[in-house]
Amino acid sequence: MSCSRYEIRFSGAGGQGLILAGIIMGEAAAIFEGKQAVQSQSYGPEARGGASKSEVIISDEPIDFPKATSVDALLALTQQACDKYSKDLKEGGILLVDSDLVKKLPKGNFTVVRFPIINTAKNEVGRTIVANIVALGAMVALSGIVSRESALKAVLSRVPEAFVELNRKAFETGYNRALEARG
């Protein structure tokens, strides 16, 4: 109910690392910025595939309802997720989609940002597996709800030493590409 309540939803297919992206966003807010944050998820019984979502609520005040009610910023990495999870995106909200995989956009008054997220991970960063971190960087840039520095700290605190540079590059690339794509 509080006006500072900000709702983020990462959606796509099971196995794309979206739950982890949500956790890192939550850690950035709760640990590195001292805000309140709740992360939750919903997924099917499949180990991979199937529509999956991870939600993060960030607020300056205690958070009661832990799930999204009116989404401020939505990421969709698959068409199925976009169709299923865009219904409660709020008017004026941000919709970030993978432009290769999501062709049909929901109707509504949203700020739509499109770029080939998975392909960017594969070709620009070098590993498809960091697509979730590219997406996270993009969502941090577009939402502005946590600082670039806090989010990057949260990413790097989760990563083994050998993968620090890969993840830093993924995060920064996603951050910059999202701002370019928004224009």
Partner: peptide, 9 residues
Amino acid sequence: EIVGHMRER
């Protein structure tokens, strides 16, 4: 399940 699986500070 929601309380078991959600993350908070």
